[in-house]
Amino acid sequence: MEAYINILPRLLPGAVITVQVLLASAALAFVVAFVAGLGRVSKYSIVRKITAVYVELFRGTSLLVQLFWIYFALPAFGIQFSPFLAGVVALGLNYGAYASEVVRGAILAVPSGQTEASIALNMSNWQRMRLIILPQAFRIMLPGFGNISIELLKGTSLVSLITLTDLTYKGLIIQNTNLSYTMPVFVMLLVVYFIIALPLIILAKKLEKNASRGVAKA
């Protein structure tokens, strides 16, 4: 028990970094998701093709490879990121690609009659999307966004590989300096990650419940 008490305070600074990376990368991911998701349903072929290439590239390659490319390879082209910014950009672009499919699917799930009615009311494309389609699609997106947020938290552990002193990095440092702490360190990492994830898990379940209730009523 003494080992666990000693380890926890040393992990907390890393937990703060993990939460910061989570919040920043989640904000980027959801902005990217809306831009790419709307691009996938654009009436312009070139926009659909560009966003499709981005989505398939980031979904079809390893997050770890993307992280290494952004942090280690881009400086060769004159683009330098700090470990924190590299982690946020890699996570945001990767999970933004997955979340864009949530956005696209939600938009396509809105009944076509809604679009036809808005056309009959002589609404522009932007008005239809802003006033009719997105408000209905957003409810459908929420459970997916909740689940992606939880997955994003798990993905933050990879930033330790680019020297960012997150929760995993702090745990590995403690474990490497005292091998007898191996078990306590990884037990505490599980506990702290779960504590961070718990609000996201509760929120995701609540959103899924609310969305299912809405569908049932419909």
Rank of each mutant, 00 (worst) to 15 (best):
E2R: 15
L8G: 12
L12R: 06
I17P: 02
Q20I: 01
Q20K: 08
A26K: 05
A27E: 05
A29N: 07
V31F: 13
V31N: 05
V32I: 14
G37D: 02
V41S: 05
S42W: 00
K43G: 05
S45M: 09
I46S: 14
K49E: 13
T51C: 14
V53L: 08
V53F: 07
L57G: 01
F58M: 03
R59G: 05
S62F: 03
L67H: 04
F72G: 00
A76K: 15
G78D: 08
A86S: 11
L93C: 02
L93Y: 02
L93F: 10
L93N: 00
V103P: 07
G105I: 12
I107H: 06
S112D: 12
S118T: 00
L121N: 00
L121P: 03
L121S: 02
N122K: 12
N122A: 15
R128L: 00
I133A: 09
Q136L: 01
I150V: 11
L152K: 10
L161V: 10
K170G: 15
G171F: 01
L172T: 09
N178R: 11
L179R: 14
S180G: 13
M183F: 15
V187S: 15
V191N: 11
L198D: 12
P199D: 11
L200K: 03
A204M: 09
K205V: 07
L207G: 00
S212T: 10
V215G: 00
A216Q: 09
